[in-house]
């Protein structure tokens, strides 16, 4: 409770102001440690425990890195930290903490660490592990070779799809399930090369200059998604699911209106087998006309 700045006195201010540059601001080592403990509790304790590595390294670990003779290095690091352990978050700079207070904190770190060893493998929290998911499973996340606004569609039969909500198109299909389910702000490691990857700048002949607009997706009762997007006046729905046989996916397209002629550029730098139930698919371009443009199905299979 206890905001003891209530105890602020002119005397303490004077004492505070009299500190030497870079040295603990105290008249005795004990006082430096005591002041350092207080400052540690205010500025550091939320992330640094005495013996356990949590958000940041333990005080015991810091004391090993910065013994008494490395106080200057400790101060420099605290004011402009880098990143020593790639698994930990980077510390915010402590420039707002006066240097003599940082020196007090250093004194406290050295004092409290004497005779202690770092405890490893202890976590503050129950560690979250991605559970088994019922497939198909749709999940947003960062994926390679796509915009950061992408969806992973994890199908059965060890097939996953990367679908980019920015470009409103399927980017690639790769053999692998669950690798995209790993959460966080890191890019998923696919652990396998895509067996289908579209390469054309523009998929639809509809597009003109207009950027497609993503509208969202519906989950069918089995969990597979029907994605919706608008290109100009036309709303497109694309339902993605497993095909009849293993290693096969089905993309069923529905357009809000019939158009005279429609072309889909399905060029790929992979060797998947693409089949359309309507129109003509030649040299990677699917051409549809009349009523066929309203609804059609592509089946993509592993080579």
């Amino acid at each position: 409770m206890k905001n003891q700045s209530a105890l602020l006195t002119a005397g303490s201010l004077f004492l505070f102001g009299a500190a030497a540059f870079g040295a603990p601001s105290a008249s005795s080592p004990e006082e430096a440690v005591e002041k350092g403990k207080t400052a540690y509790q205010m500025n550091c304790m939320a992330c640094h425990m005495v013996e356990t590595k949590l958000v940041g390294p333990s005080l015991v670990g810091i004391a090993e890195t910065y013994p008494e003779e490395k106080r200057a290095e400790f101060l420099a690091w605290a004011k402009e930290p880098g990143k020593k352990d790639p698994r930990l978050m980077q510390m915010p700079p402590m420039g707002h903490v006066p240097e003599e207070t940082l020196a007090n904190i250093h004194a406290y770190i050295l004092d409290v660490s004497v005779g202690k060893k770092e405890v490893r493998g202890n976590s503050r929290f129950q560690s979250y592990k991605e559970p088994e998911r019922e497939l198909p499973y749709v999940v947003r996340g960062f994926m390679p070779h796509s915009s950061p606004a992408s969806l992973g569609i994890v199908l059965k039969e060890n097939i996953s799809v990367c679908w980019d909500t920015e470009a409103c198109r399927l980017r690639y299909i790769w053999p692998g399930d669950r690798t995209i389910l790993k959460k966080g702000h890191t890019v998923a490691d696919l652990r396998a090369e895509p067996f289908y990857r579209e390469t054309a700048d523009r998929l639809w002949s509809l597009a003109g200059d207009e950027k497609p607009d993503f509208l969202g997706y519906r989950l069918k009762p089995d969990g597979s998604p029907e994605l919706a997007y608008r290109i100009g006046e036309i709303e497109v729905r694309e339902h993605i699911n497993n095909g009849a046989q293993g290693g096969m996916i089905v993309r069923h397209f529905t357009l809000s209106d019939e158009v005279g002629e429609l072309k889909l550029n399905l060029e790929q730098d992979t060797k998947a087998i693409v089949v359309s139930d309507k129109g003509e698919l030649k040299s990677g371009t699917l051409t549809l006309t009349g009523a066929d443009t309203k609804s059609f199905t592509l089946t993509i299979s592993k080579p």
Binding site: M1, K2, Q4, S12, F16, K35, A39, V97, E100, T101
Partner: peptide
């Protein structure tokens, strides 16, 4: 458990602090 403001306490105050706590 709120913590002391940096630099605003003198040693002499520590005893009072504990009593207040």
């Amino acid at each position: 458990m709120k913590h002391l403001s940096i630099g605003l306490i003198a040693i002499a105050n520590l005893a009072i602090t504990s009593a207040l706590e």
